[in-house]
Nucleic acid binder design. Sequence first.
DNA 1: CGGGGTTCATCCAGACACTTGACAAAGGCC
DNA 2: GGCCTTTGTCAAGTGTCTGGATGAACCCCG
Lengths: 408, 408
Amino acid sequence: MTFPSKATHQQTRAHNAALVLRALYDFGPISRADVARLSGLTRTTVGDVVGTLIEDGLAREIGRGPSTGGKAPILLELIDGARLVIGLDLGENEFRAALVDLRGQVQRTIDRPVIGLGGDERLGVVHELIDALSTGSRATLLGIGVGTPGIVDAATGTIRWAVSLDWQDLPLGEILRARHGVPVEVANDSRAAALAIELFSGQRRSNLVAIRVGLGVGAGVVLGGELFHGDGFGAGEIGHVVVEDDGSECRCGRFGCLETVANSRAILEQATRAARTDPESPLGRRLARGTGLSLEDVRGALDDGDETARRIVVTAGRFVGRAIAGMIGVLDIEHVVLHGSVAQLGEPWLAAVRDEARRRSLGLLSKDVSIELAPPIGDLVVMGASALLLTAELGLAGTAGLTPRAAA
Amino acid sequence: MTFPSKATHQQTRAHNAALVLRALYDFGPISRADVARLSGLTRTTVGDVVGTLIEDGLAREIGRGPSTGGKAPILLELIDGARLVIGLDLGENEFRAALVDLRGQVQRTIDRPVIGLGGDERLGVVHELIDALSTGSRATLLGIGVGTPGIVDAATGTIRWAVSLDWQDLPLGEILRARHGVPVEVANDSRAAALAIELFSGQRRSNLVAIRVGLGVGAGVVLGGELFHGDGFGAGEIGHVVVEDDGSECRCGRFGCLETVANSRAILEQATRAARTDPESPLGRRLARGTGLSLEDVRGALDDGDETARRIVVTAGRFVGRAIAGMIGVLDIEHVVLHGSVAQLGEPWLAAVRDEARRRSLGLLSKDVSIELAPPIGDLVVMGASALLLTAELGLAGTAGLTPRAAA
DNA sequence: CGGGGTTCATCCAGACACTTGACAAAGGCC
DNA sequence: GGCCTTTGTCAAGTGTCTGGATGAACCCCG
């Protein structure tokens, strides 16, 4: 049993400083007095904290605001570019790195294909990407965030198991910290994406589930504004819950996993079969055009009113809805966000997800549930990787800065 | 959006005081120096806090322990009976109240049948029970905890919806606080039970799910040592997730809810049908004996090797296992505890639950999962109601005392 | 145009709680 | 008996929040 850790004055300060920073982040430009009202801190304390923020170059005064009957307030704003973070998306086929500012604005992006590379070579690519982005901005580099497939021990930054990257028990966090000398956060890609939505979508929803449906199916669970990892850092691994008896084989070795019925491959396989059966259908004509069907083709077929395509997509969507219904029961979470390549199929799929989720969950709970597509805020994994770091270092998400880490 | 609240010195103190109390609670008898080592606090601070605890009558010195090479430590222990709480279990048929000490030891219990009573009369029974238990012990009465069916706004103590008790939007917390002048915590009974297991089972497991399978099916989700309520205080309401297409009608109005296939009624109905079909079977002979079958009869039939009974029980258990598999995927929680009347069927049921949960969840996650029956620590709802209060007022569970409440 | 009221920001003294360093008390070991 | 170790406490110091007071800045109004 781990014993909870003590509280210190430094933590109090860190918490309140994070509070002020977050007020600037979410509500700026804003005056000291308004920050005080918003946070409950005294004007004195806010003034003091703001002083250090300005000293650190994180905030600045931008002149006077309108008076409300008395002295006009001095408006403060966060300096978006005061710190930069590097967000990494270690995709199966391609690694992407981006230099991102505090608001999630991407300054530069680099991609590198990694198909066919071994584990060590892939690690080399990671270094290379970071080096390329960090030259010239090292002064303001807040740290490095990494989103990767597989199971990641986010506490230490160790990748336990990432088959598709040929990595096992790789202490990536430690390696990057040692080599680049900045804080590093590592998490599973779907989890990271969830945090991106929490932080950058413009609406803080302290509890939310973000489900990624693409080739894989995975979710990120945000509770109390913070990523929830579970006992073994596997929270959100819903893709391999068995949902169909006697289903087809999954890459995990089991049969009938959610992935096998709801992911992009499942949809494409069925679509291809349907296309072969009826070459004159919209799906069939699309198959004839090229080497194989893509989700774009399926989407096109849907637009053309292909009934078979619709049925395939709806069936896949229903399985996702079913999984959501289960989550609603367990967590009673009001916000579910969908993303990934399959989510981009749009309406008929989304409608099926929603319908099935509502049909299968307690009305009292589900009536307030919103199931939406992710807002277009860029590459969610890269953004999420950045969000990991902003949260850990600046307390921009979550309950703001009470972690020992933030006090350091 | 609610803005996080500020940190103060009082909260720091409350947190650290809770930490010391908890060290005494979990590891006592223990010396000040050991508490300091355990918590990371300095000996000075620990000594100071212990002073106030002794002043408040919560702890006492019980003489010297063995020396480890230096001055022998003064051992401290929690005074179990220093405070008492009243725990209420508002069951459908019967209200139960118990006077419980800090260790969960029950001092006195009172039961009152409430069958046939209206909502107001039931509220009267609640007052009556509290009055009966609180006379003579008001000085040390820490507060009142309530476990009730239905959806409860635990933040305010308002019962939103409890059909079986004929209550709707009843501000029970406020009513009891006003009438009895002590802190009051109200929560759903299944949630409360989960907290009881967390606090009183002797093993703190910061994440756990406790599933109650009886006439109703409900769970309590403990995350980070604290009850998780969800956005609408419905977290754990898994009984009404639809798990069977074209299933039978549930009391919630839907068809095929988990309850309809896994609760005691489902088992008894199928058992009765089987008993009628084959009157010579163990089930059949038991049906002939009385007016109807009980779970005891089913259990007896299982012991007699009734294959049909086994199949019925296993089928019901499998549905629970399926629900657990879903939870493992979403939350990756290692500890699942089962309780309620159906859980007492024992082995074949439990084995089916376990087997199905493992078969349907990702091996990497489920291999470390323990699915156990609740330890025999008395009436779980009464204990849980008490635990609610001990947690809120003394910070005995959870991350210890950082809530504004505890600072008061 | 000046006075009164209001709001903003800061300064300063005080309170609170943790930290550090020192020390006496109490035990074991040689 | 002397020395070392450990415990518990004390006093001084430090960091941080609080609350009252003060000056600055602005609006409104006569």
